[in-house]
């Protein structure tokens, strides 16, 4: 699904050259659930941005679902992002001016679907996260957990193969966090590749595969048997 080979990213300003990633290599296969961990400034976010085609990289190769993304222009990258990837952010990033329906509609709009198709998908996605009844509400009228569920609905409305989540529970209390994680795991169990960047050991422990990024280099972590690990199966 996702193959990165020796991907590096260098930020240059007039005076300083910062290496955010150094020859990062990582493969994620179909159906996997991977948690990415690492200390602040290790390059987790840069990795996520590159993986999500939000940012270009300096060298190396990156194949997304069999497509080499290195030489794509903005339109092709946008198209690919729109069709293959769903995002879930720590800050939810819902558009405050739009109601739930219209928020979920955003990625579908850029895909040129008929309005009937879009409606079906939006309703299905909101139904999936249990918010179909509230689709005329605005984000500000919802709790944090509900907002994150809307964000997930938006991420999956377009049927992406890959879900990228950046601290999806970081702004939520534990009850809501559990709810959101259950939802994400359920999606994964239905075949969507799930990559979560997190600080939270509890979340990391729920993932079958953990990857640790330190100083811009990724390495798989050998799983120690942990209390949380068994719950994944449920």
């Amino acid at each position: 699904m996702l193959q990165m080979k020796e991907v590096s990213k260098v930020f240059r300003t007039a005076t300083v050259e910062t290496r955010a990633l150094r020859a990062l290599s990582l493969e994620v296969d179909e159906g996997q659930f991977v948690a990415i961990t690492g200390p602040s400034g290790s390059g987790k976010t840069t990795f996520l941005n590159i993986a999500g085609l939000l940012e270009e990289f300096s060298s190396g190769t990156y194949m997304l679902d069999g497509v080499n993304v290195a030489n794509l222009d903005d339109r092709a990258r946008s198209r690919l992002r729109n069709e293959k990837i769903g995002f879930v952010f720590q800050g939810f990033n819902l558009i405050p001016d739009l109601n739930l329906f219209d928020n979920v509609d955003v990625p579908l709009r850029y895909r040129g679907m008929t309005s009937g198709d879009r409606r079906k998908r939006i309703e299905a996605a909101l139904d999936r996260v249990g918010l179909a009844k509230r689709m005329r509400h605005f984000p500000a009228e919802l709790s944090g957990g509900q907002q994150q569920r809307v964000a997930i609905a938006r991420a999956i409305a377009g049927d992406p193969k890959l879900l990228l989540a950046d601290e999806p529970t970081g702004n939520l209390d534990s009850e809501m966090a559990r709810e959101v994680m259950n939802l994400l795991e359920e999606l994964n169990s239905q075949g969507t590749v799930l990559v979560i960047v997190t600080h939270d050991p509890a979340i990391a422990s729920r993932a079958p595969r953990n990857v640790h990024i330190v100083d811009g280099v990724a390495a798989d972590v050998e799983r120690k048997p942990a209390a949380g690990a068994t719950t994944t199966a449920s």
Binding site: R75, R77, S78, F87, I95, Y110
Partner: peptide, 16 residues
């Protein structure tokens, strides 16, 4: 800018 950022992340091209 933040709205545009979200739209871009959700697959809107610059042209759109």
């Amino acid at each position: 800018a933040s709205e545009v950022g979200v739209r871009r992340a959700l697959g809107a091209s610059k042209r759109e």
